[in-house]
């Protein structure tokens, strides 16, 4: 564990807490894409199947359980909570998840490290996480008056991905056998998807205006 990875994981955790805070405090999930949340739940579900087969550390196990629990509770609120579910912008959240799920599944079958079910599902989760933010970014572009908590949620997610790149550089330099091309390429692509968002986020911050994506 290095400082970049710890910072990345904590930023990821805080982003999820910010989203839960928004839902609790405002009783609203306005501007949040259920499609992205569904995809993240799928990502965690498939990636953390090794919870049952391999013990890495207490930190690792606890974080996996927290990510699984929080992602499913967010989906629960958005789908079933009496008040919150009515604030979901279903008409605006139109991205077709199938267009990213199928290519990621095909890619995982073709490009993986090992022909085993667990490994292919794990690889699928890596590819899927890289593009799972797309429905959220599309919804943000359509949302007038993005609220602060939603903007900060996406900002924290992007920061978490950026910190993971620093972690990989650090590990590449300090751990001779650490090579993960699938994870690195997917991660760099994923971080790239936030570049546009970051530009408008800082523009809004500098000009002291509300965030809006053109």
């Amino acid at each position: 564990m290095n400082i970049f990875r710890l910072a990345a994981d904590m930023t990821h955790l805080i982003s999820i807490l910010v989203l839960l805070l928004k839902i609790h405090a405002t009783r609203s999930c306005r501007g949040i894409s259920l499609k992205t949340q569904d995809l993240y739940a799928l990502v965690f579900l498939f990636r953390y199947l090794d919870l049952f087969t391999r013990y890495i550390s207490l930190y690792n196990t606890v974080m996996k359980l927290v990510f699984l629990g929080t992602s499913f509770s967010i989906i629960y609120f958005m789908r079933f909570h009496r008040v919150v579910r009515n604030t979901y912008d279903k008409e605006q959240d139109t991205f077709r998840s199938i267009f990213i799920v199928v290519p990621c599944a095909v890619l995982a079958l073709l490009i993986n490290q090992e022909r085993s079910v667990l490994e292919i599902l794990w690889t699928f989760s890596i590819y899927l996480e890289a593009v799972a933010i797309l429905p959220q970014l599309v919804l943000l572009q359509r949302t007038q008056n993005i609220d602060n908590l939603t903007g900060n949620y996406v900002f924290l997610l992007g920061t978490y991905r950026g910190l993971y790149i620093l972690n990989w550089i650090y590990r590449y330099l300090t751990e001779p056998h650490y090579r993960q091309w699938i994870v690195w390429l997917s991660g760099v692509l994923q971080t790239g998807l936030y570049v546009d968002f970051f530009y408008y986020y800082f523009l809004a911050w500098r000009n002291n205006q509300k965030l809006s994506l053109p």
Partner: peptide, 10 residues
């Protein structure tokens, strides 16, 4: 490609 050792990341 890579090694499974680095699957210690979240």
């Amino acid at each position: 490609l890579g090694t499974t050792a680095s699957k210690d990341e979240l």
